[in-house]
Design a protein around this nucleic acid. Structure first.
Lengths: 217, 217
DNA sequence: CCTACCGATCGGTAGG
DNA sequence: CCTACCGATCGGTAGG
């Protein structure tokens, strides 16, 4: 993961020295600035999406001018990709952590549990993943790949659970993966409209209890 | 339903005759115009959301100028509410149709089946429902109520199924309703990223097969 | 990293 | 229902 969401990207092209680096290794101060800007963008993208979020508003929340922001990220699109890259890094740690079968499925529930207390992340994914269904959206390919990756991870987990004799007869790993991921996404929407009334973790555990022959840890 | 999504609305206020009606009863020609504009807006909102959709682009697709559009709808927000009202009318017919229990659940699957062939509607709901999670979004209350209504409808259906002896032991109607609606929403997102690989109807039937003691019609 | 500016586009109005 | 226009805001650049 942490690939950076491909796309041809206009690129530096041959010519004089590149005027602007897209990942400024300015040292500690620059890295802290970038971190603050990415945090502000994550928040605002979750509130109004990428398209409606202005560089000026992101910059103001991070405490600098919008040309100052562009000094660090180059273009609006590069900022979006930086936000997504950051998400990749954070999640990969929680995700890939060598778990398999039922433990891997429990790990997915853990991520949802964690997100219950980080609504900004829930908003970010909910709003961006919907906005980016448009094929020309700059995050479209990133989300398409993300779904491929997550669905494959879940299907592997179900397959391993079956090998361990922990999956009920008739539960197809690939179909169950589609349902589980859909359930996670749909519960996030309900959660954002009614936080008190939507127990995402409990509903996921309902689903897994019906599919598995062993209780979740 | 078909309430029009409340909100205080600046309103006409006392004073001289209102200069502009928000629902122009211009006769057949006006009604046809309004229909075309609503269709164009439905399409564009599904592509880029409400906030990023310009009145000029909607108007161009409907074949009139943007002040022409505003003659019919008054404000950008009024156009959005007209689109949602139209959705209410269309769905109420398919929905409330006096079915109960397992037949009502089957009716929800039928709606998804129908939407498989109307991707513009899927996009509209997917994109708008995510965008409108922001509390200050003009469609926020409409979606909040819609979820309440749909969740209550599904819970009623599960309860009736239980009365009929068609629900497996241990399936809680309200929890199952949350899961079913989440599944519908989440599958729509997967569908928009991978139409060929996402069989929404089959995955919903998987879920209902695990919950019911009788097969779906 | 700032101020100042650019051309483009936005929702809405004037006036007919 | 149109043309023409308004003030505001957009992403990005110049220049320092």
């Amino acid at each position: 993961m942490a690939d950076g969401a491909a796309g041809p990207a206009p690129g530096p092209a041959p010519g004089p020295a590149p005027r602007r680096r897209r990942t400024a290794p300015d040292g500690a101060k620059g890295r802290a600035r970038r971190r603050d800007v990415i945090a502000a963008a994550t928040e605002l993208y979750g509130e109004v999406g990428y398209r409606s979020a202005s560089l000026r508003e992101v910059a103001a929340r991070a405490g600098l001018s919008h040309p100052g922001l562009l000094h660090h990220f180059g273009t609006k699109e590069a900022l979006l990709l930086a936000v997504l890259e950051q998400r990749d890094e954070d999640d990969t740690v929680a995700f890939v952590e060598g778990r398999r079968g039922v433990a891997a499925l429990a790990g997915m529930v853990d991520i949802v549990e964690r997100n219950t207390h980080r609504p900004a992340i829930v908003e970010l994914f909910c709003v961006l993943s919907a906005e980016a269904t448009a094929p020309d959206h700059p995050a479209h390919d990133w989300f398409r790949r993300r779904y491929e990756t997550v669905l494959a991870f879940a299907a592997d987990a179900y397959r391993a659970a079956a090998e361990d004799g922990h999956l009920r007869a008739g539960v197809e790993p690939e179909d169950a993966a589609r349902r589980l991921v859909a359930l996670m996404d749909g519960l996030q929407v309900q959660f954002l409209y009614d936080r008190a009334g939507t127990d995402m973790v409990a509903r996921l555990r309902d689903e897994l209890r019906a599919e598995l022959t062993v209780p979740l840890p």
